[in-house]
């Protein structure tokens, strides 16, 4: 497992789309460093041949048949939208 120093706060803040102040970056780096140091202990566990557990219980093929049910009326759908126009959500210009 990698050392806590590997935590690249700028890279992560960028991926997570969080604008952080330098003060926040320092604070979080320190605090997360402690936590990453704490989880280092998992290195001690022998996990050879162990299946990773993605779900609390292993169940397969949970689906519904293909039938359409009514959705939200457009006014309900957009009732919490910060900005809307012509029944669509307005976002600032998307730069590719």
């Amino acid at each position: 497992m990698s050392a806590d120093s590997d935590l690249n706060i700028d890279y992560l803040a960028n991926l997570a789309r969080l604008a952080l102040t330098d003060a926040e970056k320092q604070k979080f780096s320190r605090q997360l460093g402690d936590i990453l140091h704490y989880v280092e202990k998992l290195k001690q566990v022998d996990v050879t041949g162990v299946e990773p557990m993605a779900h609390a219980s292993p169940v397969f093929n949970v689906w519904q048949e293909d039938a359409a049910r009514p959705g939200l009326p457009v006014d309900e759908a957009l009732r919490n939208a910060p900005a809307q126009r012509q029944h669509m959500v307005v976002v600032p210009k998307v730069v590719e």
Partner: peptide, 29 residues
């Protein structure tokens, strides 16, 4: 914010196996 950053880190390329995958295996145990 702290937990989002930590979670982003443990899933990010180069760390997934060491953190997330290993944690899932210990969870099985």
């Amino acid at each position: 914010k702290r937990r989002i950053i930590l979670g982003t880190h443990v899933l990010s390329s180069g760390y997934y196996d060491a953190y997330y995958l290993r944690a899932q295996k210990v969870r099985t145990l």
